[in-house]
């Protein structure tokens, strides 16, 4: 009897061990649709060599390809409508939309499409891709922070925050650079919330 019990325990243990040693299958990459209401794009620039002022774009859309286990870098395809620029001052918004800056009549959007990424730590990725502004496409790198995941396999929300540092003159936006009216370097912060919905 003892022998049978011993054999059973050893067999169970072996079975459990075999199950435990098996690798967890990697989560599949899902396409997360950006929620424009809970996503923001902000930019920061130095004015007159003095203060830094912030502005935002109110219309962000696109998708993020990402596995829920965060095992691979998120793949971004983000579009920002340039006409949605909002600095809190109507005249300044008009100037930002004018040919001096974003030239919104000609170039309605700016886009970022990622091409790859490397892990920095558990929550951060360094993502490379192509940024298109004023019709000029240049390689750009952003530090991405994975900010959270909530939900279930059917309904879920996930968040990321990307920080870009660019020189606007690389894209042909030169107004005020030479004489220091506005700095050349701009920080762009994109906070995204993506969602998965049934049938989505």
């Amino acid at each position: 009897m003892y022998k049978i019990m011993l054999v059973s325990v050893v067999a169970m243990g072996g079975l459990l061990g075999a199950v435990a040693s098996q690798e967890t299958p990697a989560a599949k990459v899902e396409t997360w649709k950006i929620d424009p209401v809970h996503s923001s794009t902000l930019f920061r620039i130095q004015h007159a060599g003095a203060g830094r002022f912030w502005g935002r774009f109110n219309d962000v859309s696109g998708t993020v390809d990402w596995p829920r286990d965060n095992a691979a870098a998120p793949g971004f395809d983000v579009t920002v409508a340039v006409e949605s620029v909002d600095s809190g001052n109507a005249n300044l918004d008009g100037h930002l939309k004018s040919p001096d800056f974003f030239n919104a009549r000609e170039f309605e959007t700016m886009t970022f499409t990622s091409t790859g990424g490397e892990r920095v730590d558990d929550t951060h990725w360094k993502v490379t891709g192509e940024l298109t502004l004023l019709g000029v496409t240049k390689p750009a790198t952003a530090v991405i922070e994975f900010t959270g995941l909530r939900g279930n396999p059917v309904l879920a929300k996930a968040g990321w925050e990307a920080v870009f540092e660019i020189n606007r003159s690389d894209f042909g936006m030169t107004w005020g650079v030479d004489r220091g009216a506005l700095s050349d370097d701009v920080q762009i912060i994109v906070a995204l919330e993506g969602g998965i919905e049934p049938g989505g």
């Binding site: 005249n91 100037h95 004018s98 001096d100 107004w175």
Partner: peptide, 11 residues
């Protein structure tokens, strides 16, 4: 002056 009103400083 009209270009300035239209926020186009360069023009």
């Amino acid at each position: 002056m009209l270009a300035l009103i239209a926020n186009q400083v360069t023009l």
